[in-house]
Simulated assay, not measured.
Amino acid sequence: MSEPALSMDALGYRAGNGRMLVEPTSLEIGAEQRLAIIGPNGAGKSTLLRMMAGLLKPSSGSVRIHGDDIAALRPLDRARLIAVVGQTDSPAGQLLVQDYVALGRIPHSGAFRRDEDAAIVEEALVRVDLAAFARRPVASLSGGERQRMQLARALCQKPKVLFLDEPTNHLDPRARSELLALVGGLGVTTIAVLHDLPLVAPFATRIAVMQQGRVVATGTPDECLTPRIVSDVFALDVLRMRHPSQDRDLMVFEASLPHSASQPIRSKS
């Protein structure tokens, strides 16, 4: 059996006030799998991801990436193994896109760029469809373009595992789908915190469902996005139907409204 890309053993986090934000949990993610961490606000999703990425010291347990204990790695070595795209990043607006993306080469080349670094930066910009924006200032980009720019920087690190913390925040519906489709085609082991449930099944090969600091379900989208789990965790109904023009299923999530609230509003005239 091949070694997992990432494994965590009894990983947990207790806040300074004694509250357990993430109950100890163990999980393995295989190479090139895409794990979506989902759950309501405050469930502990970002806390779990930050521990997995080595950005937050856990209260218990450990994380290994391709066999290496992430806590024992030097920051430079860790940056060669993983890349993180966070919810917010605010580079100087006058910085050129290509120079921002080139920051991803620092773990490999330091402050001195090699000839091959320019080729790697160009390749990353092409992969995220930003090659034409290379010499534009960061301030000129839209929200979706900035997200793709951050992803290009992460790709320049040549990571074995890519972490995304709510990467679709502040994006319009089309940009959300396009970004996750792009990530899904990279062939890189990916762990992403997602909050937009309709995007989860098309993106993820595995899901971890969190509720009140506990991982309450893991498995494939079909195993985790069941009516019972979705109702218990999100208080939503899930409806499955065939796409009217494509050979695939659709999942629709909606809140159950009280009968009185579902009645049409009648005019007083």
Score class of each variant (00 low, 15 high):
residue 41 N to I: 10
residue 134 A to G: 06
residue 234 F to P: 03
residue 147 Q to I: 06
residue 29 I to C: 07
residue 235 A to T: 09
residue 251 M to P: 01
residue 29 I to L: 15
residue 191 I to V: 15
residue 210 M to F: 08
residue 71 A to M: 08
residue 246 Q to E: 14
residue 61 G to H: 05
residue 214 R to D: 00
residue 75 P to E: 11
residue 138 V to G: 00
residue 3 E to V: 12
residue 206 R to H: 15
residue 126 V to S: 11
residue 106 I to T: 15
residue 158 K to N: 12
residue 96 L to Q: 14
residue 65 I to L: 12
residue 124 A to L: 10
residue 247 D to Y: 05
residue 83 A to I: 11
residue 117 D to H: 03
residue 124 A to S: 15
residue 148 R to E: 07
residue 131 A to Y: 00
residue 151 L to N: 05
residue 202 P to T: 01
residue 24 P to Y: 11
residue 21 L to K: 01
residue 123 E to T: 10
residue 226 T to G: 02
residue 265 I to N: 07
residue 136 R to E: 14
residue 234 F to C: 02
residue 44 G to E: 06
residue 105 R to T: 09
residue 208 A to P: 11
residue 102 A to K: 05
residue 13 Y to S: 09
residue 70 I to L: 15
residue 105 R to P: 11
residue 112 F to D: 04
residue 9 D to E: 15
residue 14 R to G: 01
residue 72 A to R: 14
residue 122 E to A: 14
residue 219 G to I: 09
residue 12 G to Y: 10
residue 108 H to C: 00
residue 213 G to Y: 04
residue 110 G to Q: 09
residue 8 M to Y: 00
residue 61 G to P: 01
residue 71 A to G: 08
residue 140 S to M: 00
residue 215 V to S: 08
residue 8 M to A: 10
residue 60 S to L: 00
residue 90 S to V: 12
residue 211 Q to G: 00
residue 5 A to I: 08
residue 255 A to H: 11
residue 83 A to H: 12
residue 129 D to E: 15
residue 70 I to F: 03
residue 190 T to E: 07
residue 43 A to I: 01
residue 206 R to C: 05
residue 254 E to S: 13
residue 137 P to E: 04
residue 176 R to H: 11
residue 250 L to A: 13
residue 179 L to F: 09
residue 31 A to E: 14
residue 113 R to S: 15
residue 130 L to S: 07
residue 118 A to Q: 10
residue 267 S to Q: 09
residue 40 P to A: 14
residue 171 L to E: 03
residue 127 R to S: 12
residue 251 M to A: 14
residue 65 I to D: 04
residue 165 D to E: 01
residue 205 T to E: 08
residue 125 L to Q: 11
residue 56 L to V: 08
residue 250 L to Y: 12
residue 134 A to L: 05
residue 92 A to P: 03
residue 45 K to S: 09
residue 91 P to H: 04
residue 220 T to Q: 05
residue 11 L to N: 04
residue 3 E to F: 00
residue 8 M to L: 15
residue 219 G to L: 09
residue 32 E to V: 03
residue 258 P to N: 07
residue 6 L to D: 03
residue 32 E to L: 01
residue 203 F to H: 02
residue 111 A to R: 02
residue 212 Q to I: 00
residue 49 L to R: 01
residue 11 L to H: 04
residue 60 S to Q: 13
residue 264 P to A: 14
residue 224 C to I: 08
residue 252 V to N: 07
residue 204 A to L: 13
residue 128 V to N: 06
residue 174 R to Q: 14
residue 199 L to V: 08
residue 179 L to C: 06
residue 23 E to P: 01
residue 146 R to P: 10
residue 149 M to D: 11
residue 64 R to Q: 15
residue 11 L to K: 08
